[in-house]
């Protein structure tokens, strides 16, 4: 029996698997770069411009290590969001991390993913449920709207609670009805209901808005 897409453990697994895959890419580049540097050393005098090539290889390894460290730190903090069922959530911090960890999944579906600038604020909610619902909104857009778009997450603080918009500003509004055709739309609506979150479509460009209490 397969888990429902709105299940929190299913979401944690999806994100973890994707990041693990990206880390394999980081390691693959480090391995090939180290191997190439070894090849240059074996070539001896036949290797032209040895010092420059060595220096380029070292810089590449350093970059990949930074990329890997960013991913593992993000993954570690993501894993610890499951420590509490209900706690204060720094909206900007948690969304920033969600973008870092799911950016590749979005790119694979032909979307770029970013978080709109703005001030941070805190709400009290279930952090894993918060991320699961945000992730489902991103999936709904990536699977129903034409690809090649910029997908922007916009958090707003309407006094109490938070409104999080997920939208493709580059698309005309006539694409908006496609979103409700997403096969898991009813699951998303049900999960929102379960966590007391208001679900609606955005009205300025095709997208979804979540209203957290």
């Amino acid at each position: 029996m397969k888990n429902s897409p709105n299940d929190k453990s299913f979401f944690m697994g999806r994100v973890t698997a994707s990041v693990a895959h990206e880390l394999q890419n980081v390691l693959a580049i480090i391995r090939e770069t180290a191997g190439l540097m070894q090849d240059f050393m074996m070539m001896g005098d036949a290797c032209q411009d040895f010092e420059n090539r060595l220096s380029t290889g070292l810089a590449s390894i350093k970059n990949q290590v930074s990329r890997g460290v960013g991913l593992t730190q993000g993954l570690n903090r993501f894993a610890h969001t499951a420590d509490h069922l209900h706690c204060p959530i720094d909206i900007r911090d948690i969304l920033d991390r969600l973008v870092l960890l799911t950016e590749r999944m979005a790119r694979n579906k032909g979307f770029s993913l970013s978080l709109a600038p703005g001030a941070s604020h805190t709400i009290n909610h279930d952090p894993v449920a918060f991320q699961t619902l945000c992730f489902l909104c991103l999936e709904a857009l990536e699977q129903t709207l034409p690809s090649g778009q910029a997908l922007v997450i916009t958090p707003e603080s309407p006094g109490k609670g938070a409104r999080i918009g997920f939208a493709c500003p580059g698309l005309p509004m006539d694409s908006a009805p496609l979103i409700r055709t997403w096969p898991n739309w009813n699951d998303l609506a049900e999960a929102c209901c379960q966590y007391g979150v208001e679900l609606s479509l955005t009205d300025t460009c095709p997208g979804i808005c979540l209203g957290f209490p």
Binding site: N25, I29, T33, S60
Partner: peptide, 8 residues
């Protein structure tokens, strides 16, 4: 991963 293909 362009860096992977170019190095390999």
């Amino acid at each position: 991963e362009d860096e992977f293909t170019s190095t390999l």
